[in-house]
């Protein structure tokens, strides 16, 4: 068995619209090594959340479906599993930390009930044991006085505490893989720092793998081992975090890195920008979509660029216009 806990191969996810089926995720492949954090970064609408929801089959049905591709978790293709088996894995072996803790928690149930629900579903614990275990999990995510907090409702907690509860729920069954979908976007920077530290710490203790979805390159740099850069439903570049930040090859990755305001740049200096915006999903071309944004005529963008490995573990979409550095191992 390989060292990868999850391997995604050529994933295609489509949504039904008035204009037929549109591809939100168009042939995405990447691996998640055991015990590592893989970041998925990209602008809104690039398909990063849809990719995550496809992994755990939480797409809105019947509008969305995975058209093809493999999601191999611990050597088994999740798409081949029946409902019952999927149920055991989702929430138990693979769990999700959602962005908005207020919508991820049920406002009318006590926190303890929401955490023990996960345990009751996925383990053979009795109600009493599950309740005790919930207290222990709350304690491990750094909630003070967990035996009292467990009897409270979500509205009684602050934003940071609520996010800790969501993390506690996700980690209750000691999953092998956690998908964190913008886990700190709704939080203040000081609270964000605490939550990221917490996820890192728990990951080390429990040896789980994490998929970190975010648009914040700072969060990626601080938490991830590997990075997947997505643009318009496709992966444009993928590699080790140091490689992506220090030696990016694809023009989009470079542009994204350049557009962050640096703390060292002189004030009010011109920030580098990416012209235009991401095309609507219905207008995507088959060829390089970043070229499309850069106003290359659509007629020239008929062929999809190959996704190639230019050095070990560093993959890039091989579009001659977008890659100034011609790939060595092509």
């Amino acid at each position: 068995m390989s060292d990868n806990i999850l391997e995604i191969k050529n994933l295609v996810t489509e949504f039904k619209t008035e204009n037929g089926w549109l591809r939100a995720v168009d042939g995405v492949s990447f691996d998640v090594p055991k015990g590592k954090t893989v970041g998925i970064v990209g602008e809104s609408g690039c398909g990063k959340s849809v990719t995550a929801m496809s992994i755990i089959d939480l797409l809105p049905k019947p509008m969305g479906h995975v058209k093809r591709g493999q999601v191999v978790f611990k050597g088994r293709d999740l798409r081949q599993l029946d409902h019952k088996e999927y149920y055991k894995i989702r929430g138990g072996r693979i769990s999700v930390i959602f962005q908005e803790p207020m919508t991820a928690l049920n406002p009318v149930h006590k926190i303890g009930r929401q955490i023990s629900e996960v345990l009751l579903l996925h383990t053979k614990m009795s109600k009493k044991e599950a309740w005790q275990e919930s207290i222990r999990v709350l304690d491990s995510v750094g909630i003070p006085a967990p035996d009292q907090r467990i009897n409270e409702y979500p509205h009684q907690l602050s934003g940071g505490m609520r996010q800790r509860v969501v993390i506690a729920m996700a980690l209750a069954c000691k999953p092998d893989l956690v998908i964190a979908d913008e886990p700190t976007t709704a939080l203040d920077v000081t609270v964000q720092a605490e939550i990221l530290d917490l996820i890192n710490k728990l990951q080390k203790e429990m040896g789980m793998s994490v998929i970190m979805i975010t648009h914040d390159l700072g969060v990626i740099a601080e938490t991830c081992d590997e990075v997947v850069v997505m643009y318009a439903g496709r992966v444009v570049e993928r590699g080790d975090v140091h490689t992506i930040f220090k030696k990016p090859v694809h023009a989009y990755t470079k542009a994204l890195l350049n557009s962050i305001p640096s703390l060292d740049a002189p004030r009010k200096s011109e920030l580098s920008t990416i012209p235009g915006t991401v095309e609507g999903i219905a207008d995507f071309v088959e060829g390089c979509r970043f070229c499309q944004r850069m106003s290359v005529p659509v007629e020239q963008l008929t062929e999809r660029p190959n996704f190639i490995e230019i050095e070990k573990g560093h993959w890039v979409e091989n579009c001659p216009t977008c890659n100034s550095q011609r790939p060595a191992m092509a």
Partner: peptide
């Protein structure tokens, strides 16, 4: 507050003040 800013540089040495 300043020490909590995530830096877009994976080799940046954090010296975080915890609140």
């Amino acid at each position: 507050l300043l020490s909590a800013i995530p830096h877009a540089d994976p080799s940046y040495e954090k010296n975080r003040i915890r609140l």
